[in-house]
Design a protein around this nucleic acid. Structure first.
Lengths: 278, 278
DNA sequence: GTAATAGTGTCTTTCAGACAGTATAGG
DNA sequence: CCTATACTGTCTGAAAGACACTATTAC
């Protein structure tokens, strides 16, 4: 090793960069696609848009679009696309949890060219109906049928998930959606993100219905109640009580807000699943 | 809805695709980078290469390279880069666990242009010293100092992780490496992937040392032993025993091979961590 | 009143961790 | 012999799940 502490060839690297031609590289495009989930009337919904132009014109697809080169990072691009396609302003977006899901880059997944899509997963509280963006013919919250037979023990891999009209989703979006549902189900186990589907104040029963809808199974009300309150930082009491009891009677439930925990410790593990996946 | 069941405008979509110009799109390039981890003499090592050309010429970096447009998917590209940079043939690659870690796409993370990197995480058994690829000046397994103060309670976020000469890593590779170590630590909890660091036959003590090195803490030998054997599908006995006991005596340990479980149920949770991250 | 719900008490089982104890090998 | 190690036994405490019970409200 010489005494050279500077990065080697700093001078020539400047010259090299000035002469660098980005268009000399093979064209691979980058998009972001967002799997935005929400609960409406206790049913899980996903945000879909109907494609206005080719390819897959008229088919339903996940909202998404090309990353603006040199202008924005991936997280930013996902937030922008979500805002554009939902008509949700940036203020409401702060109440939405958005995380990267994974990237999909099979060469033929898009007929135009080789396109790598970075998929994002969003958990949103109940939002108004979306406004279709400029490149979409329509946008809607589409119910994910809870009676889906593929939502069985742990595997949520519907390769034939369909849009509102029953048509299959465009591109490989059915596979992305399946991965997103898998991720969502396990996120509820070890993070408090179920609260992201609810308003700022909620009852334990409302929280339980989030778990029941996403996991697709009934939970024991009493044990769930005690368990949630025993996990430090999951929820904290507001002191208030709901103004109205359930539709079929019962005492008014106490109200809680999300706590400051980022991880649940101990976790809320899903029931059985019969020895997991072997 | 009309009676039209075909995708709308199938004819014109063909024409549209024929006229599509991929180079009309803004240039964002896609690379894959691999964080390959292995254990050598019971110490955690990462595979690094020294960059032969600009940018960051002479600096150490994660092995990686551009995705070959239209030719390969992301997983393929990662496997190819790993093989190229290690000199490991495809046969030996089958014993390596490779999974997607996440994508990094800040506009300025590469001085040349906007480049999105899809990062992969690899768990490898002890492999021979790597051969530097064509675009690398050198390649080496670099020890990750277990005495790293940033490897404290659960957070493994060393933004200043350095290469062999103590220089910082190129690009944002230190951040990617930190995320990879986080992922690796939690993967050991709920998957049997610790066995991917070992040969086809191993003792419980060797398995324990994998956990101890990656988690950075000593585990109770007796409890670990019973726990591993009690998780269905984690390991299965070969019937044999080690030919030699430990360097300081003791009975010869029994040998095991990896079982068929994909997930550990119940999981091997890491000790305490003091109420997790709040 | 009837029925459904909120919330609590208790029991059993499972599992993690602490600790002790025995057998086996290397030096 | 001494010591470190492989492996097993046992106890305690934490936590999950099953069940039961009370109190409260809508209808």
């Amino acid at each position: 090793m010489s005494s050279q502490d500077q990065p080697p060839q700093a001078q020539s690297e400047q010259a090299w960069l000035a002469a660098y031609d980005p268009r000399a590289f093979p064209p691979v495009a980058v998009t972001v696609d967002v799997v935005a989930l929400t609960l409406r009337q206790d049913r899980l919904h996903v945000l879909l848009v109907q494609r206005a132009g080719p390819p897959f014109q008229g088919r339903w697809a996940l909202p998404g679009g090309f990353v603006r080169a040199g202008e924005e990072g991936l997280d930013q691009a996902a937030a922008r696309e979500l805002a554009e396609e939902t008509g949700v302003d940036t203020a409401a977006l702060r109440r939405v949890h958005l995380e990267q899901l994974g990237s999909y880059g099979a060469p033929a997944r898009d007929p135009r060219m080789h396109i790598v899509s970075v998929a994002y997963l969003a958990f949103a509280p109940d939002l108004p109906d979306p406004q279709a963006g400029t490149d979409a013919a329509a946008a809607a919250w589409v119910p994910l049928d809870g009676t889906d037979p593929t939502a069985g023990p742990h595997r949520g891999g519907p390769s034939g998930r369909t849009g509102p009209a029953g048509h299959p989703l465009a591109f490989d979006h059915a596979a992305i959606l399946a991965d997103a549902l898998d991720r969502a189900r396990s996120k509820l186990e070890y993070t408090p993100l179920a609260t992201a589907f609810l308003g700022s104040e909620f009852t334990i029963s409302e929280l339980r219905s989030v778990y029941e809808e996403i996991w697709g199974e009934k939970l024991h009300a009493g044990n769930f109640h005690r368990k949630v309150l025993s996990v430090p930082g999951f929820v904290e009491s507001t002191g208030g009580t709901a103004t109205r009891a359930g539709s079929r009677g019962g005492p008014r439930a106490r109200l809680y807000r999300a706590g400051d925990a980022r991880l649940l410790h101990p976790a809320l593990l899903r029931p059985d699943r019969e020895e997991a996946v072997r």
